Simulated assay, not measured.
Amino acid sequence: MKNLEASSRATRALHIAADLFKQYGFNKVGVDRIMIETKIPKATFYNYFHSKERLIEMCLVLQKDQLKEKVRAVCESCQYSDLSFKLRQIYLLHADLKSAYYLLFKAIFEIEKLYPNAYQSAVRYRQWLKNEIFSLLMENKKTASYEESDIFVFMIDGAILGRLSSNKIEDQTKLLDYFLNMVY
Rank of each mutant, 00 (worst) to 15 (best):
N3T: 15
L4R: 15
E5L: 15
A6Q: 15
A6P: 11
A6D: 15
R12S: 15
A17V: 09
A18I: 06
D19N: 15
L20F: 08
K22T: 07
Q23T: 14
Q23A: 15
Y24H: 15
Y24G: 09
G25T: 12
G25H: 11
F26A: 10
F26V: 09
F26Y: 11
N27W: 05
K28I: 06
K28T: 13
G30P: 08
V31Q: 10
D32E: 14
D32K: 14
R33A: 13
R33S: 12
I34Y: 06
I34F: 06
I36W: 09
I36N: 13
E37K: 14
T44A: 09
Y46L: 06
Y48Q: 08
F49T: 03
K52N: 08
E53S: 08
R54W: 04
R54Q: 14
R54A: 13
C59S: 09
L60P: 02
L60R: 04
V61H: 11
L62K: 12
Q63P: 01
K64E: 14
Q66G: 07
L67C: 04
K68M: 13
K70E: 13
K70R: 12
V71A: 06
V71Y: 02
A73S: 13
A73I: 04
V74E: 03
C75W: 00
S77Q: 07
S81Y: 11
S81E: 13
D82N: 12
D82A: 06
S84V: 06
F85A: 12
K86E: 04
L87M: 11
Q89K: 14
I90L: 05
I90M: 05
L92I: 06
A95C: 09
D96Q: 06
D96L: 04
L97M: 13
S99N: 07
Y101I: 04
Y101G: 08
Y101C: 05
L103V: 09
L103D: 07
F105E: 06
A107E: 07
A107Y: 07
I108L: 14
I108V: 13
I111E: 07
I111Q: 08
Y115P: 10
P116A: 07
N117F: 11
Y119A: 09
Y119V: 11
R124G: 09
W128L: 12
L129C: 10
K130S: 10
N131F: 05
E132N: 08
I133S: 05
F134E: 08
S135V: 03
L136C: 10
E139W: 00
E139L: 10
K141T: 07
K142I: 10
T143M: 03
S145P: 00
E148R: 01
E148P: 02
F152S: 03
V153R: 03
V153N: 05
M155W: 00
I156Q: 03
I156C: 03
G158Y: 01
G158E: 02
A159E: 02
A159F: 02
I160A: 01
I160D: 02
I160Q: 01
I160H: 00
L161Q: 09
L161A: 06
G162H: 01
G162K: 00
R163I: 01
R163W: 00
S165M: 03
S165G: 00
S166M: 01
S166C: 02
S166Y: 04
I169T: 04
E170V: 04
D171C: 00
Q172V: 00
T173G: 00
K174C: 02
L176A: 02
Y178M: 07
L180C: 02
L180K: 02
N181Y: 01
N181M: 03
V183E: 01
Y184R: 09
